[in-house]
Computed example of a mutant assay.
Amino acid sequence: MTRIFFLWLACATLFAPAWAQNKPIRLIVPYAAGGPIDVTARALAERVKDTLGTVIIDNKPGAGGNLGADLVAKANPDGYTIGIAATATHAINPWLFAKMPYDAGRDFAPITQMLRVPNVLVMNADTAQRLKIINLADLVAYAKVNPGRLNFGSGGNGSAGHLAGEMFKRAAGIFAVHIPYNGGNPAQLALLSGQVDFNFDNLATAAPNIKSGKLIALAVTTAQRSSALPDIAAVSETLKGFEIDTWWGLVAPAGTPREVVDRLNKAFTAALGAPETKTRFAMLMAEPVATTPEQFEAFMKKELIRYESVVKASGAKVD
């Protein structure tokens, strides 16, 4: 009887799925600790520990997110290494960088989208008052009468803020000078000090200065108004069809078994739908977006195609 038991145990161990092992999951965040992507990843890691076990956050910033994304792409496709796919790493960078270490369309197995965060067009409050700009239509009208007199800042050439500004200029038929800074924080400080006239910023980052009155929010860039700032118009209300926001989600290396992807999807989408998660993310002005792997794959393909023309029109390039 003892021999039969141990034989059964050996067979069960041999043919048990790899995920029966008690091993932590490594979640690679391709950005520095402390930002919205890192904060939300840590929040989800905490919520899935009862279903998936320990999820360790591993911050690997560098090369605009390419460093961390490449580590995910080249990891063992066993489900124990997953990572964040974001607007930059999977839609902008493939067109921005002359050489990419990974293929955004082929080297990943989508798990689920996580979040989207509206961007917002903000002006320095003193500048807006001096130029008598109250809303987006005023800004467009002023720029048309005074071509080249306005400037806007961003976190660098090819950044989300830069591309949003270029899309806005093209849609509005105006010209404004782009001033790139080395990161989002310097760009925001330049706006607050009046060195630049307007920025397209992440709503989570800009919200405190909007609430304090230092910045004036002229419009959000999502297709509809944001529930976080329902009184602020969408750019599309003035410029039909304008839409751009910041998003991120979870991916595994290509070749990860479908049953493993499904288990990850089930755990993380449940976490995204939890009331506690929605409340916490609302404080970051972020909207949870839980999808199937197929939906996230289709969304990323659409975004990759959309940003090709945007990046090329901007003229931004990283060699």
Rank of each mutant, 00 (worst) to 15 (best):
L191W: 01
T205P: 01
L203I: 05
A187W: 00
A204D: 10
F200E: 00
A206F: 01
L189Y: 12
G194T: 01
P180K: 05
L192P: 09
N199K: 12
N157Y: 10
G213P: 00
G153S: 13
G155E: 07
N157S: 11
R170V: 04
A187E: 04
V177E: 13
L189S: 12
H178N: 14
I179W: 01
I210G: 00
M167D: 04
F200G: 00
S159I: 00
S193E: 13
V196I: 14
E166C: 13
N202G: 13
K214H: 12
L189G: 05
G213D: 10
S154E: 04
P186W: 08
G156H: 02
P208N: 04
P186F: 09
S159Y: 09
A160L: 13
S159G: 05
A171H: 06
Q188N: 13
Q188F: 12
D197M: 02
G173N: 10
N199T: 14
K214W: 08
G213H: 08
K169W: 06
F168C: 07
F168N: 06
L203N: 03
K169L: 03
H162L: 10
D201Y: 04
Q195S: 14
F198M: 04
S154L: 03
T205N: 14
P180M: 05
K169D: 06
A176Q: 09
A176M: 08
N185Q: 15
R170K: 15
A172C: 11
A190G: 09
F200M: 10
G158H: 06
Q188Y: 06
A164R: 05
P180C: 08
V177D: 11
N199G: 13
N199L: 15
G194V: 05
K214E: 13
L163N: 05
G156F: 02
A160M: 12
G158F: 09
L192C: 10
P180Q: 09
A187V: 00
E166H: 13
D201N: 12
A206H: 04
A206I: 01
M167E: 03
F152R: 08
S212G: 05
G155W: 01
H178R: 03
G165S: 04
A164N: 08
F175M: 12
A206M: 11
L191P: 02
A206N: 07
L163H: 08
G161S: 07
K169Q: 15
L203Q: 03
G184H: 09
L203G: 04
T205E: 14
D201F: 11
N182L: 09
